[in-house]
Amino acid sequence: MDFPADRNRGLKMATRSRPLSPHLQIYRPQLTAVLSIVHRSTGVALCAGAVALVWGIVATALGADAYACFSDFAASIVGRLLTAAFVFCLVYHWLNGLRHLAWDTGWGLEIKRAYATGWTVVVLAPVLTALSLWCLWT
């Protein structure tokens, strides 16, 4: 048994007339959601940074040659870009992590305060990253 007309109507109901749950493509990005996914992304990126840190420590223990290999890479343009990315991820994840810890105590969950702390992170993260890199490289 097949009722094409009925089926099409059902399809129309499902795709056009009825309200859908928000889809990422048509949903206006909100600061809180963006900061949340960036927190996760920076966390994953920091895992790669952590492996690089282990490389550096192990290379130091292996001797001057292994260390030179590591430090040459770290001093290269790619190495410096990765270092900058690593420091940014660390600073951002650190700042936003404080927000998470505050929320876990029940503080700052109101929308107004969540936005205030969120914008604070947006402003502080690049500033503290630049400051850290300046201390690191000079």
Binding site: A50, V51, V54, I57, V58, T60, A61
Partner: peptide, 13 residues
């Protein structure tokens, strides 16, 4: 493995 490598490296140092 990462933690153990670091521990061995630092103990060596």
């Amino acid at each position: 493995l990462a933690v153990l490598s670091t521990a061995i490296a630092i103990l060596r140092l």
